[in-house]
Nucleic acid binder design. Structure first.
Lengths: 221, 221
DNA sequence: TGTCCAGGTTAACGACCGCTAACGGCCTTG
DNA sequence: CAAGGCCGTTAGCGGTCGTTAACCTGGACA
């Protein structure tokens, strides 16, 4: 039941504004007075809803990690073995998330180290499970030589999809942004080596017969 | 001119450690005492080399932006009109940078807002010029329907390449990481819609390889 | 109507942080 | 040897920040 019809709670207001401010100026760069002012109350009034500033960040990060993982698991079930559809669904879901909750996406990989140890471990575990969902799907589609390579590729595609904050108001419509990110993500995965080591530098389509080439030299030294 | 052979200056030590600490814990999360301790002096001794903490961040960000742009311009000249080689060289150069200076890459898009106004404008201008180098190369190769789309794609690929910090010690060798990132970046660009106005003479037939095209409903408006 | 409590308020405390002040060795130079 | 700049040191100031304390208020309710 995630359908919300009633007005947002004061707690939810605070969380939303805190996420926005943390993403804009960094966790340490935002004072509790600013967060309070953003929701119409002032400073210490926040402590009626949260035990402290850290708790807000923790709840934000745990919440986003859980929602990502839950969404991913749902898609795994819905795909029912169709790995190609699964990867597409994971990509679409992540894009939706990145576009809907830009602030949280920023916090997710930027302010993790500001958490208390147990919270950080919890978030890390959730993130790892989410990544593993992607990794196993990618590996079944693209049997890369090593699991580490698939995992690195997944992280890289996360970086691509999470570039949303830097896009600004570039693209005209949200649908256009979605379509672009989707195409880029699929293109990146499609470049994964299907057999040996990573792809070549200049030949853009992966060559299933070529020897794994060493690193290309940079033009111009 | 810029060839360095002698040992690193105390200034350079400070900058390197400051970059590392800022990247790890955020600009506001690092005290001057920590930076001093990281180079063997303590706290206020830093003020013999920098007018303030802000100045360190400014010098780091301006420096990285200038180096990125200079490197990009060199590659533009070296490519001498070969857009395919140019894009490959830009990608390789950016990968080198992301792998060599992980800390700076993090700071580059994370702590920009902590700068004074004039410094921030300067960095933004340098970043914009660097992006434009990529955008024009990409547009000549892939006549996307809109410049905004090409620019968004470039930002997204930056996000992909800059995912290095999240990779941890995943890949065995640096060469493997380079090759992987290179392949992913090329794959992403290859997925850009190539139709446009068909201004390019050679229609690249790289989409006929059996892979199902990613659902690319280009938002008509 | 009296009581209670959720949800605010302002004042203030203690810790921390960036930065300055004042001082002192060391190395170079004449 | 004397002078002076370079490069450190420690002490401390002023401001900010997270948090707590104490108090206030409007509405729910027996």
């Amino acid at each position: 039941m995630s359908t919300r019809t009633d007005a947002p709670t004061r707690r939810e207001q605070i969380l939303r504004e805190a996420a926005r401010l943390f993403a804009e100026r960094g966790f340490h760069g935002v004072g509790v007075d600013e967060i309070g002012a953003a929701v119409g109350i002032s400073g210490p009034g926040l402590y009626r809803h949260f035990p402290g500033k850290d708790a807000m960040l923790a709840e934000l990060l745990v919440g986003i990690s859980e929602r990502l993982l839950d969404g991913g698991r749902l898609r795994v079930e819905a795909a029912a073995g169709d790995d190609r559809a699964l990867l597409a669904a994971l990509i679409d879901g992540h894009i939706d998330f990145a576009l809907d909750d830009r602030s949280l996406i920023i916090l997710h990989d930027r302010e993790l180290d500001r958490l208390r140890d147990d919270d950080r471990k919890r978030v890390r575990r959730l993130q790892r499970e989410y990544v593993e969902l992607w990794v196993s799907a990618v590996r079944r589609l693209h049997p890369a030589p090593a699991e580490a390579e698939a995992r690195a590729a997944v992280h890289a595609v996360f970086g691509l999809l999470n570039s949303t904050p830097h896009l600004g108001p570039g693209l005209p419509t949200r649908a256009a942004t979605e379509a672009l990110l989707r195409a880029l993500a699929h293109g990146a995965f499609a470049a994964l080596p299907a057999d040996g080591a990573a792809g070549s530098g200049e030949g853009e389509p992966r060559s299933e017969d070529g020897e794994p080439r060493p690193a290309r030299e940079v033009a111009g030294g």
